[in-house]
């Protein structure tokens, strides 16, 4: 890599100072990259080790003996197959509900003119700055009064109607010229037709960002499952992992295997949709 870079700067006058700077740049970025990756590599390596070998030092990056029992233990004894299924179920349902309800509501807030629109939207906007941690107590009381404590439905209901999703989609819909929907209206398309055949296809990139953002958030969520779920057969992956370290704190290898399992789906999504992560991240930060 470094030699290639050296050839590259040949285009400009090659001074010793430039060479040193370039080498330094690569050294620094390689070091910081290593710092980002090493904890993950250590985790993967430890997940294939015997409990006794996990803390071996100097670190043996390639486990010897190479043990796969940690994964069978996690999958069979620690009930991870159920936790995995629970988490997938919650992620899919919440993301789908959010996409449907938010994209519909955003349509009303951007493409239909009705008297109460701005006041209602202001109510949505005002709640955006109130974080989950502030409303979790009243939310819990409402859920309990509905008789939904310790149920997946509780988690679905509190996460499926995010004002953030409405806000993001509305912002995007506003950039779609109104002439488009007007023309469709004159051609005899009803509102739902305009929404589903004109607006939604145009909003695909934003919908994709919202999908990824929501599903990663739900997958990684810890605080709301912690508050709502008490029976272990309803746990999510994150809650199961937390439970594992308090109940089997000496099963080092198994705990690392469980950590690997909780990260794999995210890694797959990340590798296949990197573009949307970057776009989603910068959505709010650079104007115009």
């Amino acid at each position: 890599m470094a030699t290639k870079a050296l050839q590259d700067i040949n285009k400009k006058p090659l001074t010793p100072q430039r060479v040193v700077i370039t080498i330094l740049k690569y050294l620094v970025i390689l070091c910081t990259s290593a710092m980002m990756v090493l904890p993950f590599l250590w985790m993967i390596s430890a997940s294939f080790k015997d409990n006794l070998d996990v803390f071996e030092f100097p670190i043996k990056w390639i486990p010897d003996p190479f043990v796969t029992e940690n994964y069978t233990y996690i999958w069979e004894q620690a009930n991870y197959i159920v936790l995995f299924a629970n988490t997938i179920k919650l992620t899919l349902i919440i993301t789908l509900l959010q996409l449907i309800t938010c994209s519909l509501a955003a349509y009303a807030f951007s493409k239909i003119i009705f008297p109460e629109r701005d006041k209602l939207f202001l109510a949505y906007l005002a709640t955006l700055m109130v974080p989950f941690q502030v409303i979790m107590i009243p939310q819990f009381i409402i859920i309990r009064n509905l008789g939904l404590s310790d149920s997946h439905l509780a988690l679905i209901l509190i996460q499926a109607f995010s004002p953030m999703g409405v806000f993001l989609l509305r912002q995007f819909y506003l950039t779609i010229p109104n002439e488009l929907s007007e023309a469709a209206r004159i051609d005899g398309l009803n509102e739902f037709g305009i929404y589903s055949r004109i607006i939604l296809p145009l909003a695909k990139p934003t919908l994709a960002s919202l999908t990824i953002f929501t599903s990663v958030t739900v997958w990684n969520d810890f605080l709301s499952p912690l508050i709502y779920l008490s029976s272990s057969d309803k746990f999510t992956i994150q809650l199961g992992l937390r439970n594992l370290i308090s109940e089997n704190s000496a099963e080092y290898g198994a705990i690392m295997a469980a950590s690997v399992i909780s990260l794999i789906p995210i890694l797959i999504v990340f590798l296949s949709c990197q573009k949307f992560f970057v776009e989603g991240t910068t959505a709010g930060s650079v104007k115009g």
Partner: peptide
Amino acid sequence: FLLPNFLGFLVFTFIPVIFA
């Protein structure tokens, strides 16, 4: 268009904000 989201928003976000 608003109904499905607004119901959920009202019960699980807006009322909790006031209630908090």
